[in-house]
Design a binder for these strands. Sequence first.
DNA 1: TCTGGGGTCCTAGGACCC
DNA 2: TCTGGGGTCCTAGGACCC
Length: 342
Amino acid sequence: MTRWVLHVDLDQFLAAVEVLRHPELAGLAVVVGGDGDPTKRGVVSTASYEARALGVGSGTPLRTAAKRIPDAVFLPVDRPHYEAASATVMAALHEVTDEVEELGWDEAFLGIDDPPDDDPEAVARDVQRRVLAASGLHCSVGIGRNRLQAKIATDYGKPAGVFRLTAATWFDLLGDLPPSALWGIGGKTSTKLAELGIATVRDLAGADVEALSARFGPTTGPWLQRIGAGRDSAAVRESPRERRSLGREVTYQQDLHDWDDVRAQVVELATRVAGEVAESGRDAVRVVLKVRFVPFTTRTSSRVLPEPTTSATAIEQAALEAFARFEPRAVRLVGVRAELSR
DNA sequence: TCTGGGGTCCTAGGACCC
DNA sequence: TCTGGGGTCCTAGGACCC
């Protein structure tokens, strides 16, 4: 039996969906983010390839994007519309196999056993045709023997391509790259690894697991070495998985200077979250309050609920108890998150 | 550059108990 | 009067991802 994992990633998803319904935007620098007003606080969710070529990508502050590309088309994030497009795509993927693990709106892993002629590329191209036919959207497909290989392969297939990455080519392709080239390693971990003399993926694969464990802990240490070597579980976890938490947060356009205003926002968010907890049919077991002070210092405070509950009163009270631990200061963001019972 | 909103998982320290 | 080892829970925060 031969086992393959395919990683399907829609190309410039939000921008592509917008171009589909506004064909006149094709070929333009399209920037989707916030409420579409680039003078407000917010960041870019997705930029079209044309915008990326001009220095604007996901995470770029909208105000920066507007300075870099004054004549870009700025559009608001339209969640319901993207969710519908995503559902169409995921349905197309489920026609290929039941083994589908969704990763947000625009990505999924597919588990494929024994493809015809042991030709996973043919399956990948079939996936691309089906997605395009169903949704009008192009995607790239990475092929690997596990999720990690497939996920990284996709980048080499973009846009609209197919790319295979296995143990045979892992070090040829990635060996000399910094560890941050790997899925799960960001800038912070990369810096810590450099302090241990680990500068490349090859170094990481050959690193001493004991040393990694001493620095990163008993779970993360060995995991880092494994992903350096390109090893990962081939299991595709069926989605949707049981959600662990549910929250709402808001960055205010103007900083809140009045502590009573902040308190009122805590209550409002807690009420909203409580409503959604009740709707979810699950119980909350803990409430986490998040406050981002001016200029950008973030603090959290949490309370275990006396018992698992959907009670808005209990959730609000826990949020306020957490709130009472903070000293009054100017605030730019308030968030409330409920952790759900297992 | 002046930094969203939705999440997940892991670590570490202190409290507390046996 | 100076002190163990293990286990679990709670809390805060870090890091990462889409």
